[in-house]
Amino acid sequence: MKIHLKVWRQAGPTAHGQFVNYTAENVSPHMSFLEMLDVVNEGLIRKGQEAIAFDSDCREGICGTCGFMVSGIPHGPEPHTTVCQLHMRKFKDGDALTLEPWRSKGFPVLRDLIVDRSAFDRIIQAGGYTSVNTGGAQDANAILIGRDTAEAAMDSAACIGCGACVAACKNASAALFTSAKITHLSLLPQGQVERGTRVLNMVERMDMEGFGSCSNEGECEAVCPKGISLRNIATMNREYWKAILSS
């Protein structure tokens, strides 16, 4: 297969960016999207040109390192799939694809398709944990948690923090990411003590980072590689006003 690529190239955070056209030749349908880019990069490197910068690590859809826009959709057209797990058999010979980085005030572009997502770490720092020190925890089975509750918590905890939700949202809102952690911990007995302060502080941090608010459109859920549900955002909203009322 032959794939035509229009790729955003930007040398650094403050540099001016622009699209550059490339063609990926001899693409095998077994390749992953990133492997296709690897091959394009090999060609560039051999010509003494700098490779297209994109990030990845696990290449199996769990670390959340990879991610960019493939023709206007974060991680590309395949639902529930990170771009590292997207395979070229989903495309046709001759397809023309546009690759852009996530764009948001909270995620400044570092280079080409790589953005700075440290804002997510800071949102977690604001309260995305239970305050227990190592040692001294009671026996694990002393805390009973119903299977359904555990499963629901796991649904929320499955977030990989890739940022596709922010990328897809017209408001560049981080509500899905933030609410997934809030929901995970608010469902479990271990998370009750800090429940109120957690939601207030995490939302405050999310706003400080420059992310927008949620318009309840659910583009985030649609592009989320882990299918994190909009329900999490409803939970966050409810937790939020409850926390205000009880504070």
């Binding site: 190592t134 089975n141 009973l144 299977r147 555990a150 271990q190």
Partner: peptide, 19 residues
């Protein structure tokens, strides 16, 4: 295991709530 459960790691549970 105790430590991780205290942190809120959502391990799989049985219907009775045990790990």
């Amino acid at each position: 295991i105790d430590q991780c459960v205290a942190q809120g790691v959502p391990f799989a549970r049985e219907y009775g709530g045990q790990l």
